[in-house]
Nucleic acid binder design. Structure first.
Lengths: 198, 198, 198, 198
DNA sequence: CATGAATGAGGGTTCATTCAT
DNA sequence: CATGAATGAACCCTCATTCAT
């Protein structure tokens, strides 16, 4: 195995170990020693790849957000040229699924951010997603928006904010489903409104 | 000064010191010693009022959420009998103001929650706010809802979620204002839709 | 109630509280605050009677050893003029009973000695008991000893040492009884031997 | 130096340092920091070998009792087949020497036990010694015992108890010698008596 | 005299980081 | 390059003692 590939594997192992430790022991017990142990490497090796603990957590979150952004971009691409209603539905579903698939991981990663200044991470993520959804909405088969930027930002913020709120309040499934359903209704109503206004 | 009043003052001093430390040093540097120092009391005294660090952070968040819930309840009471559109506007404004008035405090308190099992806190807050907004919407002068519970939950979650998202993305003022304005449009459109559906 | 009597009561209450704390929480958790609490007095009051923690523990052990010495002196007096065999039996029984009556108290008090330089206490106790048993043996109806001092010291040391060993090894009752029985046999055999030798 | 050997050295250094601290500062001042300092290692290193303070003290006592038991077993083996009188003498001498050789160490270790639940330690020690002396007495060239178990237990308890009592009362040398001499007389007289009884 | 809140030195323990092997 | 023992600053918390009320 070439050097780079091996490094890649090691890093991935460390990432996975970090998540496992986070899941089983919590952020407070996330120590470099424990992660290295779980990953089956020495602390020394870990410091070869991450110059300090923060770097590890940063990379962890970066990777998570990258994967998330990938998924969202992908979903957006698939809706190219579709009617807006369907786009909105797709966004809600995609984001909700990403969050709930590995709900506990989502939760602990969100915790781990405390050890970071995550502003830049959030911004980078925001920019990617903004661009993806803006492109999607611009391609809608049944709508043209006077102020695409604002509409996009509004839909994005409200969909992501609401989904996250539902997730964090840990609502019972039937209520969560109901709210998400209504969220779609809401977005559609909004789109109808701004289209008329246009 | 009577005993109780003195205790009250000490506790408030400690709260304020905690926030100051959180602001200047961050959660990771929030140590019992540092808080005590900043509060001008000894560690020992701190431990007379808070049996351990967690208790301090818990109390801090509890107090914050109580004040927030108070404000929301108050705002809801003031809108009793008003038209729904106005209610929605009031909710957005109140929550946004509460968040931005002491923006940094809001941010650091959100961080500090990591050291807690804040489930019960969030739940208690959720229940109070749910009740307040449900009562408000039920009194609307211009609308009756078939499924008040779901409508309420939807509005609540989306308003709070969206406002928080705007807040955390740290959008420039003009964009933030635009999105919040659109959020109100969105809610109104939704209310129109569910009213028609009823 | 006159001043002195009240002081006496308070001191006794504190003693009893100390023992209770020792029993329920162990030596490590024996804090001045806890003792005061259990005794129903303030720490300040406690410091009126005992200038520091050591003084309390010292007094506690002093009292215990005084009561013990009292009992032994009493038992010795009662055996005045009796045959030596009976004296030896009485000593074993008295000491064993004193230890086992409140076995746990004996044990914890023995622990508490660590916080002290108990040399003087032990010496004072030794002197009193030495004198009492020497006087007793001197009055024996059936024996005269050439070297009373040594015989006395030997019996004393071996009886007390053995009884304590049995107590601390926590032997099952039947074994403890057997050993104590044999101890008496041993002492009698010894007395027979030194009498012949004389 | 191989890894294991180095670890062994470190552990021994820590043990010796603990004893030094115990000797010079007493149990109450036996802190992990002080021990580490005296041993010339960092606290962290200490915690690599002993997960907590208790473990250190436990190990310290365990080692002491092991060495002591080794010596007693050795002495017993050497008396195999000898006459009982000689066996008894050997036991007294061995135990006394073990205690007095490093008298102060013996004393401080006895103190340190307070921080432990030493029941298991004492039991293990008791079992080993019981077995060794029982085997020795069973091999006596000049005596057979009807109830070896009880005789053994009696001799053991009285010899060890008496020796310890002499040790702890800190008697002047001439008195200590006299009492130990008499103790041997006593044991012999006892053996004579139980042999006759058999 | 009694009270008990306040003090703060000092305790046990952890863990990010280094560096000799 | 990998290893993991060693480091020690820093953490949270306790408790004997004091002193204003």
């Amino acid at each position: 195995m070439p050097r780079q590939a091996r490094a890649r594997v090691t890093v991935d192992t460390i990432f996975e170990a970090s998540i496992q430790v986070l899941l089983s022991d919590g952020l407070v017990r996330l120590t470099t020693t424990r992660v290295a142990e779980r990953a089956g490497v020495s602390v020394g090796t870990m410091y070869q790849y991450f110059p300090h603990k923060q770097a590890l957590i940063h990379a962890l979150n970066e990777r998570y957000l990258q994967v998330l952004a990938d998924r969202i971009e992908d979903a957006c691409r698939k809706q190219h040229g579709a009617p807006v209603a369907q786009m909105v539905e797709s966004l809600v579903t995609t984001y909700w699924q990403a969050k709930t698939e590995r709900a506990e991981v989502t939760r602990v990663l969100y915790q781990s951010v405390v050890e970071l200044d995550n502003r830049s991470l959030i911004e980078a993520f925001g920019r990617r997603v903004d661009a993806a959804t803006a492109a999607m909405f611009a391609s809608a088969s049944d709508a043209v928006f006077a102020d695409l930027h604002t509409v996009n930002l509004t839909l994005l913020t409200s969909i992501f904010g609401t989904v996250r709120s539902v997730f964090e309040r840990d609502l019972p499934a039937f209520e969560a489903d109901a709210v998400l359903g209504q969220l779609i209704v809401m977005c559609k109503a909004y789109l109808e409104a701004v289209r008329q206004a246009a």
